[in-house]
């Protein structure tokens, strides 16, 4: 049982530390990329070479810092609020069936609408500042936390719940001591999925409008055929994704059951 969860529960450090194989693979892929570009003489404006991307990462960091911070801040704030809202609404929905029947269809609908399609309209109303991006992230990401948590809370083990009934625990006690810990892995599944949606929505909102953030930088660099700089932006975005994944993994690794 524990073994099946080994990968899911392992902190990022462990996964990276688990060895040389991934490092060798990454180096091999980069080498293949570099050699292909050189051998086929692919121009830089079409596809940047890894060495050029490395150079751009080193030289462009200072200039990109405000955009990096802006993107990171939007995604982290939006994602954190999405987790908090998703969880809070899940607790309400799983406790009151009337709320569940009223809210669930709406939440599923939100889940199904790609926010990229709504963001341009939201920008007409709210402008292109950080607020609209954070709101878009929340709307797209919270349903995933919410739906997964609700399913986990409602599928609490009947035997475990019966102990609470036998002790005549009140709702709060029953939730804290039984339902929440029993469903914690479902909550984490939702949080992981939500982190991916937060990344996608955050960056795509920046691509759609405004001139701040890594998403808007990528479009800017591509317009000027600066592919190496565009790639460096993508790497900064990937770094945030890895950080978020790592933090979630470390927190979940503390859950021992």
């Amino acid at each position: 049982m524990e073994k099946n969860y080994a990968l899911k529960n392992a902190p990022l450090v462990k996964i990276l530390g688990s060895g040389i194989p991934p490092i060798v693979l990454i180096v091999a892929l980069l080498a293949f990329w570099q050699i292909s570009c050189v051998v086929r003489d692919i121009p830089t404006w079409m596809l940047a070479r890894p060495t050029a991307v490395g150079g751009a990462l080193a030289s462009g960091f200072g200039a990109l810092l405000p955009d990096i911070l802006s993107t990171y801040a939007n995604i982290i704030i939006g994602f954190a609020l999405a987790v908090a809202i998703g969880l809070a609404v899940a607790i309400l929905i799983s406790s009151f069936s009337l709320l569940s029947s009223a809210l669930t269809p709406l939440i599923i609908a939100l889940c199904c609408i790609p926010m990229v399609t709504l963001v341009p309209m939201m920008m007409l109303v709210l402008g292109t500042g950080p607020n609209v991006k954070i709101i878009a992230i929340i709307i797209q990401a919270f349903p995933l936390v919410n739906l997964n948590s609700v399913v986990a809370f409602l599928n609490v083990s009947p035997e475990r719940l019966e102990l609470m009934q036998s002790l005549k625990a009140n709702r709060v006690q029953s939730f804290l001591y039984c339902v929440f810990p029993d469903g914690i892995h479902g909550v984490f599944t939702g949080i992981r999925l939500a982190s991916i949606m937060a990344m996608v929505t955050g960056v795509s909102s920046e691509i759609i409008g405004g001139n701040a953030g890594l998403g808007s930088r990528i479009i800017y660099f591509i317009n000027f055929s600066k592919t190496a700089d565009a790639f460096s932006c993508i790497i900064y975005i990937a770094v945030l994704g890895i950080i978020i994944y790592g933090v979630i993994s470390i927190i979940e690794s503390r859950v021992k059951w």
Binding site: R160, L163, M164, L167, Q173, Y177, P181
Partner: peptide
């Protein structure tokens, strides 16, 4: 029917906690 998130003693003490 022990709760895996509590230690043995916390499991034993659960009724007291609720009461």
């Amino acid at each position: 029917n022990l709760y895996p998130w509590f230690t043995v003693k916390q499991n034993v003490m659960l009724p007291l906690k609720i009461y």
